[in-house]
Nucleic acid binder design. Structure first.
Length: 425
DNA sequence: TCTGGGGTCCTAGGACCC
DNA sequence: TCTGGGGTCCTAGGACCC
């Protein structure tokens, strides 16, 4: 029996979320911007048609935006995460096996499901549209890599009406389709590798499907062997239905302005470390080291450039925000050099293990550990209930002049009382 | 003036050991 | 003076994804 894996992907997800609450934007060119209103990260069909490119710096788009009346939103992750949860939870009812792959994509196992898979996929689309209001497309195929391509076909070729089931095609029909798609569309082939593949005559997906896997492996890397197998319908990637713990947790952000002040960097370091350790506790892990780095703005070639990072081992694995903040400040003071215009500081937690596997040492202080645990638990509970950042360390600063710019954010319609009232009005 | 953030996997090269 | 070969572990950096 042929395996059947479905990939459900929300169309222009962030833009679709914004439109849910402002239906008058239907049919208009809309974009959503990254943090600091830096780049375009989501575009409506109309914006794509005008020529707005993915990841384009927004300040370069201002002229085009004015000319066509493009509506731009700052990103509102609280909103998108909430809508995503609703979509994913609905999808989970359509199959016993689901892998939530990203904020706007999910794989579902359909193998063995009775009936016509394409019809089932239309039911999925209809349900998500009806209950959440988000448009989605569905690709079905025997491997994840092909399911991704099927989804691409469903999105770009209107005759499929949002659902493309490669399993229902004979091999000639399938190969004809693959011959018309550029090799760069394949999952795992990025902008670096695509030109190198073209150099050796591999231009379309069909070329790659028929390429000698061994040779590609030697020339590029082992991942290509897998990609070629997947394109030939041999599933090498299993459905990951249990989300795995993160092996590293990063929190870093560009500032709303450049700064050379150590005070600013310290505040930001504490703020980001606090977020990172919250995530660490959420997955019930502990970490043994923290990496902190700073850098100037690499795009400002007229500035003297500086970037430096340092790994700070902790005395003991921990999930206590205070331990990591101490380490972050210690590291920061070692790499800080006055006189640079810093653009970014970031922290990364490393040596992460489950809290249940904490190694015991001779010097364990159980009473101190209990106090720490109860303090952190209380902190998390209050912040969860009253809103993130209600309780925080004073070191984060109360007037964060480095904080990022968000000039045109929509309200948190679904996760905040104020946002809800705006929504009803 | 203004160019995101958070992840994973793979490779190469160096240090070290036997 | 000669200076092997294989294994492991760590780190940095590249490539990719969304």
């Amino acid at each position: 029996m042929t395996k059947a894996i479905a990939l459900i992907d929300c169309n222009n997800f962030f833009v679709s979320c914004e439109r849910l609450f402002q239906p008058k934007l239907e049919g208009k060119p809309v974009v959503v911007l990254s943090n600091n209103d830096g780049c375009v990260v989501s575009r409506s069909q109309e914006a794509k048609a005008i020529g707005v490119k993915m990841a384009a710096p927004w300040y370069q788009m201002k002229g085009l935006a004015k000319q066509h009346g493009i509506v731009a939103f700052s990103s509102n992750y609280a909103l998108y995460a909430d809508i995503s949860n609703r979509v994913m939870s609905l999808l989970s009812q359509f199959s016993p096996e689901q892998e939530v792959y990203s904020i706007d994509e999910s794989f579902l196992e359909l193998s063995g499901m009775p009936g016509d898979h394409a019809e089932y996929a239309q039911l999925i689309r209809h349900t998500i549209r009806q209950c959440v209001g988000i448009p989605v497309c569905v690709g079905i195929a025997p491997s994840k890599t092909l399911a991704k391509l099927a989804n691409h076909i469903a999105k770009t070729q209107p005759r499929y009406n949002g659902v493309c089931d490669l399993n229902s095609m004979d091999v000639h029909e399938l190969d004809a389709l693959l011959a018309d798609i550029a090799v760069g569309e394949v999952w795992g082939v990025g902008r670096r590798t695509a030109p190198r593949l073209q150099e050796i005559g591999i231009r379309s997906v069909l070329d790659l499907k028929r390429a000698p896997a061994k040779q590609l492996r030697d020339r590029f890397s082992v991942v290509f062997e897998r990609i070629v197998s997947e394109l030939n319908g041999i599933a090498c990637l299993a459905l990951d239905d249990i989300p795995r713990d993160k092996q590293q947790i990063i929190c870093s952000r560009s500032f709303g302005m450049l700064t050379s002040s150590l005070d600013d960097l310290e505040q930001a370091a504490i703020a980001y470390t606090t977020r990172a350790v919250e995530k660490l506790r959420q997955q019930r892990s502990i970490a043994g080291a923290l990496h902190i780095y700073v850098r100037t703005n690499p795009h400002r070639t007229q500035d003297r450039q500086y970037q430096q990072g340092i790994l700070v081992p902790l005395d003991d694995t921990s999930d206590d925000t205070r331990d990591f903040c101490k380490a972050a400040l210690h590291g920061l003071r070692q790499i800080y050099r006055p006189g640079h215009a810093y653009q970014k500081v970031g922290v990364m937690l490393a040596e992460i293990i489950p809290a249940s596997e904490r190694p015991r040492t001779l010097f364990d202080d159980d009473a101190a550990r209990e106090r720490s645990k109860s303090l952190m638990t209380t902190l998390d509970r209050i912040n969860r209930r009253m809103g993130s950042g209600t309780l925080k360390l004073l070191g984060e600063g109360t007037n964060q002049r480095w904080a990022m710019r968000r000039e045109n954010s929509s309200r948190r319609y679904t996760t905040e009382w104020d946002g809800l009232q705006v929504c009803r009005a």
